[in-house]
């Protein structure tokens, strides 16, 4: 008797090993099936699917699907309750004007096919560790605008924590590939620290805005040459752009 009893597909992952036709549901499907399903989903749905159960979480993280992202934007996460705590001694009008500038946000916003999705920082971590990821744009905004010194002190502590988290997220086995990087920072040393994690070969343009409204305005002594040296920039091609902007709206372009 002829028997069509083919061996299972190559056992190259945990997902493959657990593929089981006797218990047909999504977490038990072979890796190739999960990959096909993920190819048909937008990034918001993939992040939701990842939260359904541990098995799907690990399957999706292992597959590292192409999320087809246009841009990733990191901003200091601000919640309504954090705003309350920053301005506990301030008037309602101060709180309101701050709210006008900073809407509550989670810290990371991704743009995929013209749709913006906010994701928690822990999701951003796994997203940026995807070696297939090549971002069109990476924006990092670390600026704070407040003249209330108490609030600035509290915000500053959160900002320091956020900046450390950012560095932890960006630090991976490979350098992050991004075609365009836009940094809004308080000083150039922050920018230099971030640029260390970006693959210079992927870069086509960098834009740095250095502004700090919490401090008295002063002329910024910007030394872009030093910044470029410190990050050992080797841009992708001869047409690459490097723009620097101070609070006095001075801009520099390097070709």
């Amino acid at each position: 008797m002829f028997t069509c009893c083919f061996p299972f597909r190559k056992m190259n992952s945990k997902i493959e090993e657990i593929s089981d036709p006797c218990h047909p549901n999504l977490p038990n499907m072979p890796k190739v099936v999960m990959e096909e399903v993920l190819k048909n989903l937008d990034c918001r749905s993939i992040f939701c699917l990842r939260k359904v159960c541990h098995d799907l979480f690990f399957s999706i993280d292992k597959i590292k699907p192409d999320l087809h992202l246009d841009s990733v934007r990191f901003e200091l996460p601000i919640t309504t309750s954090s705003i309350e705590s920053y301005f506990e001694n301030s008037s309602e009008s101060v709180k309101e004007s701050f709210m006008g500038i900073y809407q509550p946000r989670t810290g990371c916003r991704i743009k995929s096919r013209h749709n913006y999705v906010e994701i928690p920082m822990e999701d951003a971590e796994s997203l940026l560790k995807n070696p297939k990821l090549i971002l069109d744009e990476l924006h990092i905004d670390l600026r704070l605008y407040t003249a209330v010194s108490d609030a600035f002190f509290r915000l500053g502590k959160d900002l320091k924590k956020f900046f450390e988290t950012m560095k932890f997220i960006l630090e991976g086995p490979q350098l992050l590939k991004a075609k365009s990087v836009e940094l809004s920072v308080h000083n150039l040393s922050e920018a230099a620290e971030i640029l260390k994690f970006i693959d210079p070969k992927s870069l086509k343009s960098i834009s740095i805005v250095e502004e700090d409204w919490s401090l008295p305005k002063k002329r910024n002594e910007m030394n872009f040459g030093k910044l470029v040296d410190s990050t050992e920039m080797d841009m992708a091609d001869g047409n690459s752009e490097f723009k620097g902007k101070t609070s006095r709206e001075t801009s520099f372009i390097f070709s």
């Binding site: 036709p21 047909p24 499907m29 072979p30």
Partner: peptide
């Protein structure tokens, strides 16, 4: 899911 498994 059985159909998908079989298709694969």
């Amino acid at each position: 899911f059985k159909l998908i498994w079989a298709a694969d």
